[in-house]
Amino acid sequence: MGGDRVLIDRFLEMMAAEAGAARNTVAAYRTDLSLASATLGGTLAEADAAAIGRLADGWATLAKSTVARKASALRRFYAFLAEEGLRADDPGSALPRPGTSRPLPRTLSGGDIEAMFAAIDVRIARVPPDRNDLRLSALFELLYGSGLRATELVSLPRGAIVSDRPYLILKGKGGRERMVPLSDRARAAVVRWRAHVPAASPWLFPSGKSHLSRMRLYQVVRALAGEAGIPPDRISPHVLRHAFATHLLEGGADLRALQAMLGHADIATTEIYTHVDASRLVRLVSELHPLIDAGRTRP
């Protein structure tokens, strides 16, 4: 696999430097390409359509989403080789294109969110307040109030949020910058929490020698759900991000604005939330369409 390894490294360097691929994406591509190379005895780079077909046959028992991911990695790899003049052809057309259906995101009702905020209010009303409760309040306000990804949230710098600035500039997946709205409540919660963060800390949510881990964030969010009477297996930091998006759409937010706030590179990723809001759309048509006239009967 020596030759394959060198070319895979070059391809992934391009993905990271030129295409702006996220670290997790690069890692997934490396795994898929390395496994494919091993299956073909280190001849992935020069494989013909027949060899690729045999490789794809070995994916028969895998989920459609997994096959789609593997095929996408190989297609991009072969396109790179062709563009670099390392192959005279692009055999990517021999790879399968399974139809995949994107599952609807799990979300929470307005009542669920209110119950969790009420549980937080009970906590921070204690005298004196526990610093962990103040941290939880800031974390939850930012997760639900701004739709941050878990990694983005736990790695926020100590001074990232300014009390008189209603937005935050973030660098998310692929190094793309976006502006994230900050509510008055969120900024106030951060101010209360930051008073307990050492001034020398580089992180807003420090833990040991680094920042709070995603796993610990997951644990504290689930514990809060349990206190609020919500089954913990229904919730995670990402579910709160989904709730942020879904509730904004229900309130009439523009899909493009939502795409920008969530940091989605492709509007198709944001459009998944329109399916969650279908019942509201049906109600709007039934109640507000100009042809609906409850007082008029057909002749």
Score class of each variant (00 low, 15 high):
Ser236Pro: 06
Glu13Ala: 15
Ser137Asn: 12
Ser201Met: 01
Leu148Cys: 14
Arg256Lys: 08
Phe11Gly: 15
Ile161Val: 15
Arg176Val: 14
Leu33Gly: 01
Arg75Leu: 09
Asp48His: 08
Pro157Lys: 03
Thr31Leu: 15
Glu141Pro: 02
Pro290His: 15
Asp90Ile: 14
Ala17Asn: 13
Ile292Trp: 05
Leu86Asn: 13
Tyr167Ser: 04
Asp254Thr: 10
Arg234Asp: 07
Ala82Val: 14
Ala225Trp: 02
Met15Ser: 05
Ile169Gly: 01
Ala21Glu: 02
Ile113Glu: 07
Val190Met: 04
Val162Glu: 04
Ala268Asp: 13
Leu12Thr: 10
Gly252Pro: 13
Ser34His: 02
Asp89Leu: 09
Leu136Asn: 04
Ile292Gln: 10
Ala56Asp: 10
Gly263Trp: 02
Ile120Gly: 01
Ala189Val: 01
Ala199Arg: 08
His196Lys: 12
Ser65Leu: 09
Ile161Asn: 06
Ala200Cys: 06
Arg216His: 12
Ser201Thr: 01
Pro206Ile: 00
Gln219Ser: 13
Pro181Gln: 09
His238Ala: 12
Ala47Trp: 14
Pro206Asp: 11
Ala186Ser: 03
Arg126Ala: 12
Ala268Val: 09
Ala138Trp: 10
Arg241Leu: 11
Tyr29Leu: 13
Ala119Gly: 10
Leu134Met: 07
Glu84Ser: 04
Leu249Lys: 15
